[in-house]
């Protein structure tokens, strides 16, 4: 279980407060008006922003002071998820060892992950030679070999068209189900939440509300959410 215990997260001159729990294996969307601090919340879980009060716990173990790379967390960003000077296979291999010293069996795992996301045989290409959707698949293959318990998505598919984005979200849901990972995804589109999220965390007025069932919340939005959804 991912637990944010009376957390206060500083991002420059504003703060986000969160006191909530997310069940293991759940797929949770974080929605709210832009500027409310959606990215701030997931960046704190990833360890990029300091938590000035409270603690973050995963299955009872405290993460609050851990370095980002030591947390059981994999994250995909809005852009810049791949290194353009490394090949597709190297980009995925970073998920196993950041210094890229992989054994033969580890390289086979990389190939298998690429196979799984539908990019078999493309390992030697550079990201620039791939389409936007294929680049997203490479990033997901890396998440797959990382095998972390928590997957954070900060709108990594925002630049894709609607059909492609839906395809990627379905792939995320599928991969998460197979590995049992807990997914926390930032979104400004309620349809994304309806598509794959069981629950929704609403962020408004600097406060993250505990998760609620997606359909329930979106069908009967509280005033803050209603103002945002229009």
């Amino acid at each position: 279980m991912l637990r944010l215990e009376t957390c206060r997260i500083m991002n420059g001159d504003y703060a986000v407060e969160a006191d909530l729990e997310i069940a293991p294996g759940a797929c949770v969307a974080v929605i709210g008006p832009s500027g409310a601090g959606k990215s701030t919340l997931v960046e704190a879980v990833a360890g990029f922003l300091p938590v000035t009060r409270g603690r973050i716990l995963w299955n009872g173990a405290e993460l609050t002071r851990q370095a980002p790379g030591k947390r059981p967390v994999a994250m995909l960003f809005q852009d810049g998820n791949l290194f353009p000077h490394l090949t597709v296979a190297q980009n995925v291999g970073l998920g196993l060892h950041a210094n890229l010293r992989l054994s033969a069996s580890e390289w086979r795992r990389v190939d298998a992950a690429l196979e799984r996301v539908g990019l078999g045989g493309m390992g030697t290409r550079k990201p620039a030679a791939l389409s936007g959707g294929q680049q997203s698949r490479v990033a997901l293959a890396r998440v797959l070999v990382q095998g972390r318990d928590i997957l954070l998505l900060d709108e990594p598919f925002a630049a894709l068209g609607p059909a492609l984005k839906a395809e990627m979200l379905d792939l995320v849901a599928e991969l998460a189900r197979e590995s049992g990972a807990t997914v926390l995804m930032v979104s400004h589109d309620p349809n994304d939440a309806r598509r794959i999220a069981d629950q929704v965390v609403l962020l408004a007025d600097g406060k993250a509300h505990p998760p609620q069932q997606t359909a329930e919340l979106l069908d009967n939005p509280p005033p803050a959410l209603k103002a945002y959804l229009g």
Binding site: F48, G69, K70, F77, G80, G95, A98
Partner: peptide
């Protein structure tokens, strides 16, 4: 700015 967070999350330091 572009690759700092990704590298950190991959424990690449």
């Amino acid at each position: 700015g572009r690759y700092g967070r990704l590298s950190l999350s991959l424990d690449m330091q």
